Simulated scan of single mutants.
Amino acid sequence: MIEEPKALRIARDLGPDGTPGWRQPTAAQIAAFRDQPTGFVLDAMMGAGAMSAAIKPCAGLPDRLCGPALPVGNRPGDVLATLAAIHMVRPGDILVAGFDGYQGCAAAGDRVMGFLRNRGGAGFVTDGPLRDLTGLRGIGLPAFCTGLTPGSPVARGPGTVGLPVRCGGQQVETGDMIVGDSDGIVVVPFARIDAVIAALRGVAEAELSLDAQVADGLAEVGLISAMLESGEDIDWV
């Protein structure tokens, strides 16, 4: 006989008391990403780390998100693990709720967002839709999702809290940096945070310099100008 799985699997070093060993970026590391566009962060990772373009900021809510991930794994149409994760949230956490991409009902609504806000959470990301838009706007917490639906989920499990989860095409683990804006969501793996911060400085300098040149009237792309001048990589027909 196949043994029935437990309703919840929770990473042992998670807990409402903030058990030591729960990895989390430092305040300085989080601050390094806070005002950076997702495009800059992605470039600093050589183009890796973006979630699916289907995951967008929910209309009428703040579209800026920055903080460490608390990953949650749900079965399609089920939110038991998301509800359990509310009890594990630490101030500043981003709840990343994998929903297996299911679009048939909501992955959360205004009540879950209210719980999350009251626990000090900084935002919510899911690969499913949300519901209760009017209530969500009243809560005012940043939420990224695939759209809206009136459909209600169930809460039966099984599900996971604090274990790696796949969401929007990206692997998300506890303590990974989540950066979001109007362009979407980028995931920075915990082990790469310092390296990405170092690369980010150079990316930002280059991008801001080019922006200033365009504002001053620049009207050509250096790479294309060089190709046109040399003619080596162009076949004129």
Rank of each mutant, 00 (worst) to 15 (best):
Q103N: 09
P62C: 03
G162A: 14
S230A: 09
R119M: 13
M113E: 03
F33N: 01
P158M: 09
F124V: 12
L116K: 00
R90L: 09
G92T: 04
V125M: 05
A195C: 05
A28Q: 15
G21K: 12
A32P: 00
D194A: 15
F190G: 00
P25M: 03
L133C: 08
R192L: 11
V112D: 06
G202K: 15
S225F: 04
A204R: 15
P37K: 01
R166C: 07
D35F: 04
C66E: 06
M88K: 11
V154P: 03
R64F: 10
T134Y: 12
C167M: 12
G18Q: 05
A155Y: 10
G135A: 06
P142I: 00
P158N: 08
Q213N: 07
G67I: 07
T160L: 13
P76R: 05
P142F: 09
I197V: 14
R201A: 10
I193Y: 02
G202Y: 12
L133W: 15
D181C: 03
R201G: 15
A206V: 09
T134Q: 15
L133T: 11
S230C: 14
A219H: 14
G121D: 00
L14K: 01
S230K: 14
A215H: 11
A27M: 11
V89Y: 14
P25S: 09
V89S: 08
G222E: 11
A122Q: 10
N74P: 08
L208Q: 12
W22V: 02
G49R: 11
T82K: 03
L42Q: 09
I30H: 11
G231F: 11
G217A: 06
P57M: 09
L130G: 07
D43I: 01
G135Y: 13
V237G: 15
G128A: 02
D211S: 08
C145R: 00
I185Y: 01
P62S: 05
C167R: 00
I224E: 12
F144N: 10
C145E: 00
V79E: 09
P71R: 08
Y102D: 01
I10T: 01
L218V: 06
G157C: 10
K6H: 14
G121M: 12
G151P: 07
D211G: 04
P62G: 07
P164A: 11
T174H: 10
P76K: 13
Q103C: 02
S152G: 07
N74C: 15
T134R: 13
V125Q: 04
G104S: 10
A206K: 14
G109C: 01
A97G: 02
G140F: 04
G147A: 04
I2P: 10
P68R: 07
P20S: 01
A48C: 02
V188R: 10
A106Y: 05
M227F: 07
L218W: 13
A108N: 05
I2R: 13
D211M: 13
H87Q: 09
D35R: 11
L70C: 02
V237N: 11
R12W: 04
D183H: 15
G202P: 04
G140N: 03
L218E: 14
A44R: 01
I224N: 09
V186T: 01
L116M: 04
G138F: 08
G104Q: 07
L218I: 07
I193F: 05
T19Q: 13
G98R: 02
M113N: 02
A108S: 05
A11S: 07
L228S: 11
G138V: 05
C58I: 07
G162S: 12
A53T: 11
